[in-house]
Computed example of a mutant assay.
Amino acid sequence: MTDLIKVQHDDFNVAEQYQQLIQNNQQDGAVVFFVGLVRDFNQQQSIKSLTLEHYPAMTEKVLNLIVEQAREKWPLGRISVVHRVGTMQLGEQIVFVGVTSQHRQAAFEAGQFIMDILKTQAPFWKKEQTEQGSHWVDAKESDQTQAQTWLK
């Protein structure tokens, strides 16, 4: 089992992340990944750009704990979590979550679990730049509700 957890300013290459999940990995038959992008609209406002800040030591610790929780719930092979910080423009990549498993159901569920828990528990602070100015964004209630379904 190999986990890759990175928090970085630089963009990532999805094809390279995928290759790391499958290279010399003949035991897993399923690969699921998610890529989150900066979108142009959120909570009734047009977005110009997005800035993510974090507390480095704590963020990586929490991401590792989320991955450990996923491993306790599902039989998983490799896991990759790459999350960007800094200012990103519309359409830029924010996060990559990739999971391998012997079977697709575990890979799908674990990938969704990691993303849902990451959105609500990882210490990232999100600031949106809009036509009206900049503002910090709280976690959405729908994200909190979805995370709670996994933690029951």
Rank of each mutant, 00 (worst) to 15 (best):
E68C: 10
Q69E: 12
Q26M: 09
N64L: 02
V32F: 05
V31L: 14
T87P: 05
S46K: 13
D40I: 06
A110S: 13
K48M: 12
P56A: 10
A57H: 10
L37C: 04
D28F: 04
H54N: 13
T2I: 14
P75G: 05
Q17I: 05
Q89V: 10
A147Y: 03
S134I: 11
Q148A: 14
M115Q: 12
F113Q: 08
S134T: 13
V32R: 05
S134G: 06
A15K: 11
Q93A: 03
E68W: 06
K6G: 06
L76G: 06
K119Y: 04
K126P: 12
Q148I: 05
D143S: 05
S142P: 02
Q89N: 15
Q132G: 11
F108P: 05
F34C: 06
P75S: 13
Q146A: 09
Q102A: 14
E53C: 08
Q89D: 15
S80M: 02
Q17N: 14
Q121C: 09
F108K: 09
A147R: 01
S142C: 07
T120H: 04
F34W: 00
D28T: 09
Q26V: 11
G98P: 11
T145M: 03
D40V: 10
P75N: 05
G77Q: 08
N64V: 00
Q105C: 04
A107C: 01
V95I: 15
G77K: 03
H9P: 09
Q69T: 03
W125M: 05
R104W: 01
T87R: 09
V14K: 07
I22V: 15
K61D: 04
D3Y: 00
N24C: 00
D143H: 03
I114G: 11
L90Y: 08
K127V: 15
F34N: 08
K73D: 03
N25E: 14
V32C: 14
V7E: 06
Q8D: 00
S134C: 12
Q44C: 12
I79W: 02
H54Y: 06
G133P: 11
V62F: 02
F124C: 14
R104S: 07
Y55P: 09
Y55T: 09
G111K: 07
P75I: 09
T51H: 06
S46N: 13
H135P: 01
L151C: 04
F113R: 07
V31M: 04
L118E: 01
I66P: 01
A30K: 01
G36T: 03
I47K: 10
E72K: 15
D3F: 02
Y55D: 04
E68F: 09
V95M: 10
K6D: 10
Q129H: 15
D116H: 06
V67L: 09
Q148N: 11
V97G: 10
T130Q: 10
D138F: 06
E109K: 07
I94F: 00
H103C: 01
N64D: 09
M88S: 13
Q45V: 05
V32T: 13
D138V: 08
I22W: 05
E68H: 11
W136G: 10
A110G: 11
E68Q: 15
A57K: 10
L21K: 08
D28Y: 00
T100G: 05
V82T: 14
T145E: 13
G77E: 04
Q8E: 06
T51I: 00
T145K: 05
I47L: 07
G133E: 11
I47E: 00
K127I: 15
D3P: 07
G133M: 10
V137Q: 03
T149I: 08
